[in-house]
Amino acid sequence: MELDLGAVRAFIAIADHQHFGEAADQLALTQQAISKRIAKLEAGLGTTLFQRSRNGSGLTEDGTAFLPHARALIALADQARESVSGRVRPLRVDVLETRLAATELIRDFLHAHAGVEVDIITSSGLRSGRSALVSGAIDVAFARVVGALDPSIDHLPVYLEPLHVLIGRKHRLAAHRQIRLSELTDSVARMPGNEPGSEWRQYYDDLAADFRLTIDTSGPYFGLEHLLDDIADSADSIVFTGERLRAPWHPEVVQIPVVEPIPGYPHSMLWQRRNRHPALPRLIDYVTAGFRPYDPEIHWLPTAELHSGLWGKPHVRESRRP
C-alpha cells in the first residue's frame, strides 16, 4: 500500500493528543473524518495502531514502533514542500508532557519573540527524542540527558528545576511552608506507571537512594487528576513535581517547596547540529541567557550530572549556535 500523508498526519496528531477529538480540532476535521483516516491506515498496514478507552487513545506496540517513522515521513514531506514554497515551517519542539517546565519555557520564549511559530509534540522523552532528532522529524527536544547521544546531536543544559511536593491536607507536613528532604523519609512518593529505564526514573531512583526515600511505582497511571484524589485521601503519600508544573487545582492538596538541599531536575535542550531552521539560534540564545547554574551549597544533583561538568557554570552562546 502507498501511505496516505493525510492519514499519517492524523495518526501523529492522535498520538500527540491521545484523543481523537482533540486531534480532529487541531487538523480542522470532524471526528468521523479523522476516524476514517485511521481506519484506512490501520487496514493498509494490517495492524491496530491505537488502544481506545474511555480515558483516551494510547498507542499499541505497533503504533509505538510506527510513530518515529511517521514523524520522519511527514518531516520529509514538509521539507519537500518548503523547498518550492519558500515558507518557513514552525519549529517542531518535543516535550515529555505539556504540563511540565519545557512547555512553560517555550511559552515564555514565544512571548519574547513575536512572529516565531512553534509546533509542540509530546513523546516518551529522551529515547524517542533522540531518534526523532536524527531523522529530522523534530527540531528540538527537551529532556534530561543520560547516556551517549548520536554524534549529530548537540545539547546544552537550560533549566535546573527545583522540586516541590504535592501533599494532602491530612499529611502531617501539610502546614509547612517548606519541607526538608530528611522529613520525607516516612512518606511514600507515588509514581504509578513510572517507566523503567527512563531518564526520569533514574533521577528519582538516585534521589531515593541518597536520602532513604520510598517511591511506589505500582498501579496504572490514570492521570494527574486521579492521582491528586488519591493523595488528598492519604496521610502519608506525596507526589514529587517541578515548581513549574501546571497542576490542576485541588482543594485538599497543597504544593510545597523541598529544601536542604533543593533537588533540581536537570532539563537540557537537544538539537541536530546540521539543522538550519532560522528560529533555532534564537531559542538557543534565549535559553542560554536564562540558564542558572548548579550551586553545591543549596542544590542536589545526581552523580551523572555532577560528573558531566555542564551544570556548574554559564555557557558561551556563540559556540553553541548551529
Rank of each mutant, 00 (worst) to 15 (best):
D150G: 10
A114T: 13
A148M: 09
E161A: 14
V165L: 12
D186I: 13
H176Y: 10
P192G: 11
L181D: 14
G197W: 05
V158R: 00
R130K: 12
L149H: 09
R177S: 14
G197N: 07
R190H: 12
S124G: 13
V134A: 04
R169C: 05
F109D: 14
V158P: 00
R172S: 03
D154M: 15
G147W: 11
A114F: 06
R180S: 07
A112N: 07
P157L: 02
D139M: 09
G197L: 05
V146F: 12
L110T: 07
T122P: 00
R127S: 12
D108V: 07
V188C: 04
I121D: 09
E199H: 10
G168W: 02
H171N: 01
A132F: 12
L110N: 10
R144F: 02
R127M: 10
P157V: 04
E199C: 09
P157W: 01
N194E: 15
I138F: 03
R144L: 09
L133Y: 04
L126M: 02
P196A: 08
P157S: 02
L126N: 01
L110Y: 09
A148L: 10
G193R: 06
K170I: 09
L181I: 13
D108I: 06
R177A: 13
V165G: 06
R169I: 08
A174P: 00
Y159N: 13
H111I: 12
S131I: 04
A114P: 09
V145M: 08
D139G: 13
W200V: 15
I153L: 12
I167G: 01
H164S: 11
E161R: 03
A141T: 05
A189T: 15
S187M: 10
S187W: 11
L166H: 09
Y159P: 08
P192T: 12
W200H: 15
E195P: 14
A112H: 07
H171P: 01
A143D: 11
S128K: 00
P162M: 04
D108M: 11
G125F: 03
R127Y: 11
L173K: 04
V188R: 09
V116T: 07
V118Q: 06
I179R: 02
S187C: 14
R177P: 06
V118A: 05
L110C: 11
R172Q: 02
R180K: 09
Y159E: 14
P157G: 05
R177G: 10
S198L: 02
E195R: 15
A148K: 13
H155A: 10
L110H: 10
L133M: 02
H113M: 04
L160V: 03
L163W: 06
E199Y: 05
S198V: 01
V134Y: 08
F142S: 06
G168C: 01
G193E: 06
P196H: 09
P151C: 00
G125Y: 01
E161C: 09
L110V: 05
E199V: 08
P151N: 01
R180H: 06
R127N: 12
V116F: 01
G197Y: 05
S135H: 11
G129K: 03
R180Y: 02
H176K: 14
G115D: 13
G197V: 01
S198Y: 00
N194G: 15
F109G: 13
G147S: 10
H176L: 10
S152M: 01
I179S: 00
L173G: 00
F142P: 08
L133T: 00
